[in-house]
Every structure is written in C-alpha cells, then in structure tokens.
Design a protein around this nucleic acid. Structure first.
Ligand SMILES: [Zn+2]
Ligand SMILES: [Zn+2]
Ligand SMILES: [Zn+2]
Ligand SMILES: [Zn+2]
Lengths: 146, 146
DNA sequence: TAGGTAAATGAAAATTCTTTTCAATTCCAA
DNA sequence: TTGGAATTGAAAAGAATTTTCATTTACCTA
C-alpha cells in the first residue's frame, strides 16, 4: 500500500464514506497505475483480482473520487472518460504517451502571458485552461525504432 | 450561403461525396453557428427547419466533416463530442465561453519553449498538444453582473 | 436530357455506455 | 455486540451511438 492510498482512505472516511474491500481494490489499481484508465479498463484490471466486483462499483467509485478531486480527467485520444490518480495536488497538466497511455505530470505551464494577451484581445474573462501534450515516452520510442 | 460553406461543398464533391439537401442543411447550421454543437443540439436546430432529417444523418455528416478535417472537436465541459466548423485552416486553438458556448479562435499558442523543456526533462518525443481556454465572453459578463 | 448506378437516407434494430432501482449485505460508531 | 445508514451486485432502465436494410436520390454518362 502506497502513501497516496493511505491519504485517500483517510479522505474517504473524513467525508463519511465507508472503506469497503471493493473500494480498496479499485483504489489500489488506480493508485498503482501510471496510465490513464477508462471505466472499462479499470473494471478489467480490478475484475482479474476480484471477480466479484461489478462494473457498477467502478462507476460509483470513480464518481466519489472525482467528487473529492482525487482523480484527473484525461482527454487524449478523444476520450473524456479516462482517469488518473491526481498526483500533484496543485495546478498541473499531463504529458501522455499515445502508445502505452503512460502519463507524466508537469506543474509549470506558464500560460499567464498568453492568457493576459487573449483576455485583452477578446474581452473574455478567462477562468481556466485545458492543456495536454501527447507523444511517445522514451520506452515506446525504443520499441518503435526497433 | 457563406464562403466557407461553398468551399466545403467543393471539398465534399472532390472526395466523391454527394451534395444532398440534408447535408446542405446540416452544413448551413454548422457554418452559421459560432458555438460548439453536440450531435443532439445540431439535430435540434436542423430539425426545426427540416423536420424530415433524422439524427442518423447528423451523425453521418459529422463523421464526414471530421474525416475531411473540416470541424474541430471541443473538450470544454467534459464533452468530447461537441463540434465547431474549422475556421482557421492551420494550427489553432479555442477560447470558449462557459455560459453561451461561443468560441473564439486564436492561432499563436507559443508552446514551443514549453514543449522543448518538457521534451528535455522527460525524454518524450512530443507530437502534439491540446489547449483550450474557458471563461466568460464579454456579452455573458454583462449578463452575469446585471 | 434520360437512365444507370453507386451513394445516401430514414426507420428500426442492435450496440455500447452509464445510471437507477432494489433487496440483501456490510461497515462502523455507539 | 448491535442498529442503522451506506454499499453492493444484478437486473432493468435510459441515453448515446452504430448498424442494417429497403427505398430513394444525386449526378455521371451516353
Ligand atoms: Zn509509452
Ligand atoms: Zn496550467
Ligand atoms: Zn458567452
Ligand atoms: Zn498550439
């Protein structure tokens, strides 16, 4: 069990959510994974170890984690329902490998200047931004060139 | 009929697609709209003028437009199936009003430096990026403060 | 300017994907 | 322990999207 998972279980309890074995199993898979997971792929992984756990529980657990802000939503590959454990707690973005789905976080997006300029040019009151980079991770680059 | 729509019908023909009244109606709505539209909202608008046109045709037309690269996919609001006519033909991004859905394009994202830095730090071979700003357009700001 | 033909259409059925319902079970604070 | 609210899985319901198919239509060619 990782530190991140401990923190999460604490947060769950804090909000009155129970810590069931099913949730632990789902959390474990999410916490240990470094790629983004769809409900279906998460279910697949969880199901291997715990065949009793249903897809409904996956959806419900994802809803709770999203509510608590513990997971990040990914958009790579045109999929709006792919999630990753939130690792840096503050503002950050993701670099996603288009081959293996691996994700690396980065925190300094430096979009302040651009935002100011756009705001001035368009009159928009800018509230937020979505930024993601995609490419090939070092490991997948080797595979590709082999 | 706008210039953009003329170009589009030409591209359609070029690829062997027929120019049916149904497609013209769908194109017309997309070309004249400045907000992003989901298949359902597009259907709703098209249906008002042309009640015979079915939702299936909307989906099929969207698929063609996407294939030809004539529409942009939006991610704001967690919806991966919201589209907008592609206005600048080159690389560009969007500024989206979270209230009315209006979209403004901008072309100079200046992410080259950041991309270089991330590439050096992570070893990723970066292929592309997704960038969207969201906020309130001038008109919706007035409504909000009233 | 017909006529032939491949493409397109709409309705309905079939697939996904996601949420709701509900009875049975389980966590956990007292 | 035990009471009670929260959670679970199965099944049903609902929403979104795709496929199927018989019929119609655009548009190239003669
Ligand atoms: Zn990779
Ligand atoms: Zn940022
Ligand atoms: Zn607006
Ligand atoms: Zn860009």
């Amino acid at each position: 069990m990782r530190l991140t998972e401990k923190k999460i279980t604490a947060m769950l309890r804090q909000r009155g959510y129970k810590l069931t074995p099913q949730r632990q199993a789902v959390l474990n898979v999410i916490a240990l994974s470094h790629d983004h997971l769809t409900p279906a792929s998460l279910y697949e992984r969880v199901h291997q170890e715990h065949p009793g756990i249903g897809l409904v529980t996956i959806y419900r657990t994802l809803a709770i984690l999203a509510e608590l802000g513990l997971i990040c939503e990914m958009h790579a590959g045109g999929n709006c329902r792919s999630y990753l454990l939130r690792r840096p707690s503050g503002h950050h973005h993701h670099l996603i490998c288009s081959q293996c789905g691996g994700v690396v976080d980065f925190t300094d997006c430096d979009l302040g200047e651009l935002e100011k300029r756009l705001s001035a040019e368009t009159g928009f009151d800018i509230e937020g931004h979505l930024l993601e980079f995609s490419g090939l991770c070092p490991s997948c680059q080797r595979t590709a060139s082999a």
